[in-house]
Amino acid sequence: MSDQQLLEIVKNALIKSPWVSHLNCGSCNGCDIEILAVLTPRYDVERFGIKLKGSPRHADVLLCTGSVTRSMAPRLKRIYNQMADPKFVVAVGSCATNWGVFHNCYNTLGGIDKVVPVAMYIPGCPPRPEAIVFGVYKLLLKLASLDLEKQEEKDSVSNLTQEPIRSEEVTT
């Protein structure tokens, strides 16, 4: 099997059934209960093949909430590094996107993209479950148009102080 074929298989697995892991980086809990609501009978994302996993090592997508407290930043980085490539981060909620209501709080850094590259932003305080489902669906569309060979170099963000990569750069 050639490398190209292997990548095709990986990509197919990713689009058909992305496994997500969830991480609270100092959120108020609002986004977290909405993410949970997404899994329950009314919204039920499992019908798209999306499954919430306990360990980031098993996950393709990391759903992050919160404006990243200073205690959590190194841990977020560490967890991101634990995930296997190709990996994608989704920032759920206004404060994960761009600090939001916590912009005056000394112990926050101001968004997931200050620490790790983010592939998709879902705004809202908190985003409705429909918005989260839509966001994940958009991510799947992006994954479908992905060139995995280029992905690797862009994911090697090893330094926290490095400029974060915006969503367009990550996926195109």
Binding site: N24, D32, G54, P74, R75, T161
Partner: peptide
């Protein structure tokens, strides 16, 4: 918080919240 090699105290600092199944 920016420094990835902060003095993580002892071994227990590896203990960290990672999402289990339900948020």
């Amino acid at each position: 918080g920016y420094n990835p090699t902060i003095p993580l105290k002892e071994e227990e600092d590896y203990v960290m919240a990672v999402g289990p199944q339900h948020p």
